[in-house]
């Protein structure tokens, strides 16, 4: 990593956009690898809102990064770099999702196991671990049943922790629309959780 990156690192230890953009334009591989490792998880999750399989989401993310490599010379800084990258991702994923919905039979979409939540990832004390793992899997599944616009918003806001302004910019939606989609998504996921606790006689 170049000295500039270390010196200019902010509270999050993540370099500011001008440093990153300069690194990308100069072919600094460490800067590219940093971005790749920092953003790809969130990008995969967001892509999954629009396409039918995890493998398809991975291809969307790959195509997005290839587009970023080609186009970073044209980035003008009118939005943050992250917003710019995520907008490319959303366009790529939407196009692919539309193509898939015309060609893939519904049954093969429904048949896929929801991705994420590797079983060995349950953390914390031994007693809570099993329950926490179950609740996580349930919530992960519930998110998978949401319509894509709701899923995109809840992914960015609640799973990735982005602010509402950035989410509106990434998805090109109004603040009011963003809030409606987020609320519907949360309420639907909450319903799944409540049904689970009712079944268990739990809280």
């Amino acid at each position: 990593m170049s000295e500039g990156v270390v010196r200019l690192g902010g509270v999050t230890d993540f370099p500011p956009d001008p440093v990153i953009v300069a690194g990308l334009r100069n072919g600094d591989e460490e800067v590219f690898a940093l971005l790749l490792d920092e953003w790809s998880r969130g990008m995969l999750r967001l892509a999954r809102s629009y396409v039918s399989t995890a493998a398809s989401a991975e291809e969307v993310v790959q195509d997005t990064w290839l587009a970023v490599i080609r186009a970073v010379g044209t980035f003008e800084g009118r939005s943050s770099l992250r917003t710019w990258v995520y907008r490319i991702l959303v366009n790529t994923a939407r196009r692919r999702g539309e193509r898939e919905s015309r060609t893939i039979p519904v049954s093969s979409v429904d048949g896929e196991r929801p991705d994420g939540v590797p079983p060995e990832r349950a953390e914390g004390g031994p007693e809570g671990a099993a329950l926490a793992g179950e609740v996580r899997e349930l919530i992960d599944k519930a998110v998978g049943t949401l319509p894509s616009r709701q899923r995109a918003v809840i992914t960015l806001r609640d799973m990735e922790g982005y602010g509402s302004d950035e989410v509106c910019e990434i998805l090109s939606i109004s603040p009011a629309n963003q809030r409606v989609l987020l609320h519907r998504a949360r309420a639907a996921v909450r319903d799944h959780l409540a049904a689970y606790y009712d079944g268990k006689g739990g809280p």
Binding site: G27, E29, F32, A33, L36, D37, S40, R41, G42, L44, R45, A54, E58, V61, Q62, W65, L66, I69, D115, G116, V117, P118, R121, V135, R136, I139, D140, V143, I154, D158, M159, G161, R186, A187, V189, R190, L193, A194, Y197
Partner: peptide
Amino acid sequence: QFTTTITVLGELPAPGLSPKTRSHLLTAFR
């Protein structure tokens, strides 16, 4: 329950890129 839901959503583990895709992209960048 609503705020618990939001908390759990923020704790869900996210799988990353496969090593194959990652190395393909690093090569493309180079």
